[in-house]
């Protein structure tokens, strides 16, 4: 694995979940370390329940890490595991995107508005944001007749591509992708694969979970193996 000048360095990351009402602790990940450099795609691989999504959600801070550091390069570097909420929001706005498994968006917004939103939040002018959103939707094969329609009415595959378009449109330095092609047919999956390659070629770093081992083989520059649930990571 390339470790020279990593964009993101995860060290000793642990996360478990305490369910108070059931007095239970559920293992997530334990002592995970890895890093990803610019222009590199790192695939997280492991059995179901090994914590692949947990790692992505800890980096995005949807989950609160229990221990460890998630250091994002910068002047100064930011520890996403411990920095305050506003710093996380700013990193999300300017540097980090997450292709989640499901699209959450405002009910009445059109697909075009959903995809343009991250650009508007970065301060890009409305017309330019919409033009870039149109290009991104076209690249992912969303037919033009759907651009002005809220994604709630779309098929699962179309909705997921809107989700991917929204994550890619701002050309994030670091992209997290949780099974981005799981609900897509072969043609759509090929468009998404091309878009991920383009992001990487432009210098973006990607940390991804793929349901399809063939995608890992084709795309990954580095592979991080997560041990079975409850087993600590090798030092």
């Amino acid at each position: 694995m390339t470790t020279a000048d990593p964009l993101l360095a995860v060290s000793g990351l642990s996360k478990s979940f305490v369910l108070h009402h059931q007095a239970k602790r559920i293992a997530g990940v334990h002592g995970l370390s890895f890093s990803v450099a610019r222009g590199q795609l790192c695939a997280l691989v492991g059995a179901s329940g090994s914590g692949k999504s947990t790692v992505l959600k800890c980096i995005y801070r949807t989950y609160r890490p229990a221990a460890g550091r998630i250091l994002l390069a910068g002047e100064p570097p930011i520890d996403l595991a411990s920095c305050d909420e506003h710093a996380v929001l700013a990193v999300r706005r300017h540097r980090l995107s997450f292709i989640t498994q499901f699209l959450h968006c405002v009910p009445r917004q059109s697909a075009l508005e959903v995809v343009a939103a991250p650009l508007l939040a970065r301060g890009v002018a409305r017309e330019e944001a919409r033009a870039r959103a149109r290009r991104q939707l076209a690249e992912l094969g969303i037919p033009e007749r759907l651009w002005d329609v809220p994604p709630a009415t779309f098929s699962g595959g179309e909705r997921q591509r809107v989700n991917i378009a929204r994550a890619l449109v701002a050309e994030p330095e670091l992209l997290l992708a949780d099974e981005p092609t799981a609900s897509l047919d072969a043609d759509a999956a090929a468009l998404v694969e091309r878009a991920l390659r383009a992001r990487r070629a432009a210098g973006g770093a990607i940390i991804a979970v793929f349901h399809d081992p063939a995608l890992v083989a084709r795309l990954a520059d580095a592979v991080v193996h997560l041990p079975a649930p409850g087993v600590p990571c090798a030092a």
Binding site: P76, D84, H86, A90, V91
Partner: peptide, 11 residues
């Protein structure tokens, strides 16, 4: 609006 990367809104 936010300024740089590391210290947005915090300034």
């Amino acid at each position: 609006m936010t300024s740089g990367w590391g210290t947005p809104m915090l300034a």
